[in-house]
Design a protein around this nucleic acid. Structure first.
Lengths: 215, 215
DNA sequence: GCTCCTAGGGTCACGTATGACCGTCTACTC
DNA sequence: GAGTAGACGGTCATACGTGACCCTAGGAGC
């Protein structure tokens, strides 16, 4: 059945606002698709269905699937950072210090790895490995995000801990180790919030941040 | 053009041998496809082309793509373990000790993350996240492999280091951190063999294995 | 108020992956 | 040495994803 005179959308607001709305709508749907169905599942059809937009509308803003996914990567890093920053401010509002701060910082860091965006990023990363175009796009995005993330990390840990001699090492170890552990949770059913590694990380951080580094 | 009387294959050897050959041929090709073109690229067509087998031959041994990939996962863990064990034996033939052994152990561990099978596993893992069937299959496979890997790790480190109080912690931290770092190399062009994290890991291991653990 | 032009709606041709299906041949069995 | 069953060769219908394509409507500029 060919329905060229289907119920027309009633655009409201200015044109630029509608454009922004459309892009956001679509990008959010893309991220959701990535999280729920993986990279292959984030097809243009799936995205348009989830976003509730027509094919024309999607392809108008993102002429190809590749462009859509690259844009989604950018969208991802922007939103993630904002969310983490917000949570950090809320969690550290009472300015804890010492061991309490270390524990909370680690729990917060680990929590970010449970968020859907992490999996969206993972899907994009693995796909980027065999897709040169996506790879270069993600590389740039990653550098941008990396710098910002380390900035947020400093806020999370607070100036005192961040001044510790071996703080950079600890930070790097924690980030990488958490990433490594998080991946395994892709097919583990155990809840990530009670992962035994948490205790391990806390011990490590406490030891490395308190003891004077020998070099 | 329908050619039902094409050049027939000349099967040599017994039937069971040919079956084993076929399976190996196909599974190796599957792993190669996973490494080079990713999960989506490991289509049954791509695999059959790379393995140089007909569609019938492939579908006879692996009736569906899902079964093929699950089998590939099993094949993967078996071959990886054998390879690592062999390299470990070669590298530690002269029985180094102390700092030298720590350094070599870490370099060997890190080297295994550069091998193609690691990427094949990564592709399967990420795919498993959104594929229940593959997930349960991989979970079982992972448990099997995990136990074996830790056994090999003990060989790599040697009885003395493995007896250290905090050896299990070090091992766990190194494995997870390396995995986390390795992933980033998916879209980094820097050579992994000179990754700055190597020095970090070596320092960590040395410190944690030599110092008496306070608890 | 008229025109332009962009945002968006909907269809289509094409390429490709999948697994069912049919046919052949050969290694084993009796 | 006849028969069977498994290993394999090859084709097909089907489904799906993609992006080109053509269409309309309604703000924006005059």
């Amino acid at each position: 059945m060919t329905v060229y005179s289907a119920a027309p959308v009633r655009p409201s607001g200015s044109r630029s606002a509608r454009t922004a709305d459309s892009r956001l709508l679509i990008l959010d749907a893309t991220v959701t698709c990535l999280v729920e169905d993986g990279y292959a599942g984030a097809s243009t059809l799936a995205v348009q269905a989830r976003a509730g937009v027509s094919r024309g509308r999607l392809l108008h803003h993102f002429p190809s699937r590749a462009q859509l996914l690259v844009a989604a990567a950018g969208h991802l890093s922007s939103t993630v950072l904002a969310a983490v920053r917000e949570r950090a401010a809320a969690l550290m509002a009472d300015q804890p210090a010492g061991r309490e701060r270390v524990d909370r910082a680690i729990e917060l860091m680990w929590a970010t790895f449970q968020e859907p965006p992490f999996w969206a990023a993972m899907e994009l990363w693995t796909a980027a490995r065999t897709d040169p175009g996506l790879r270069t796009a993600l590389r740039a995005e990653e550098r941008r995000l990396r710098a910002a993330i380390y900035g947020v990390a400093d806020e999370i840990w607070g100036p005192e801990l961040a001044a510790a001699e071996r703080y950079p090492e600890v930070c790097e170890l924690l980030f990488t180790s958490m990433r490594g552990v998080a991946i395994v949770h892709a097919f583990e059913d155990r809840p990530a919030t009670t992962d035994p590694h948490l205790a391990l990380w806390k011990r490590l951080a406490e030891r490395m941040l308190s003891a004077p580094g020998a070099g």
